[in-house]
Design a protein around this nucleic acid. Sequence first.
DNA 1: TGCGTATTTGGCAAAAAATGCAAATACGCA
DNA 2: TGCGTATTTGCATTTTTTGCCAAATACGCA
Lengths: 96, 96
Amino acid sequence: MLADRRQKLEFRARLLKAMAHPTRIFIIEELARGEQCVCELTSLIEADMSTVSRHLSVLKNAGIVQDEKRGNQVFYRLRARCILGFFDCFETLKQQ
Amino acid sequence: MLADRRQKLEFRARLLKAMAHPTRIFIIEELARGEQCVCELTSLIEADMSTVSRHLSVLKNAGIVQDEKRGNQVFYRLRARCILGFFDCFETLKQQ
DNA sequence: TGCGTATTTGGCAAAAAATGCAAATACGCA
DNA sequence: TGCGTATTTGCATTTTTTGCCAAATACGCA
């Protein structure tokens, strides 16, 4: 396989993998409603804040979310809203 | 978090996880061109046929592809073409 | 029935991902 | 400067994923 194609496949796989976790999908859906700080997300997700922070950094490294520090807290927001469209496709797979 | 929501998140994560591998994305793209038998896919992917077969079963368990045995060989085809649209969204993330 | 090809499955080892705890950092405020 | 809150990072452990080899299965054909 050509190196060029392999590179494109790996890029796509990296993005899908970054999203492929229930907590990270939850984060994506919540951020679709507007930006949130880590503490707000942590209070919604029953997990250690360090775990939530790690999930956020996975999404950030993939370019899916963006962070901004304001004062004491860090706010995250969704950078690729088109991702939300994926889930409609999934619904068609659920039946049958 | 409500059990109902958690279940939905897990379903979505399972689908994303099933796609989140370079070889499996390759398979999805190839099947978008039409059905292929395992041997054809194996010859395109430089990996053991057993490895390719396992990737195919991951996609099949997720409901993304469908298989049909004809004679000696097993043909796979894409069941959810809408998945192809994902990758356009990814392109927007690549720049910057 | 016996052989050859196509595919899947079992088993195992290596690599990657997930998670909590504790420690480090960053920042605002008294 | 010193304290308290918010966030990230280091570390150790467990779980999951990947990939190959060898063995098992399935099927067509002589």
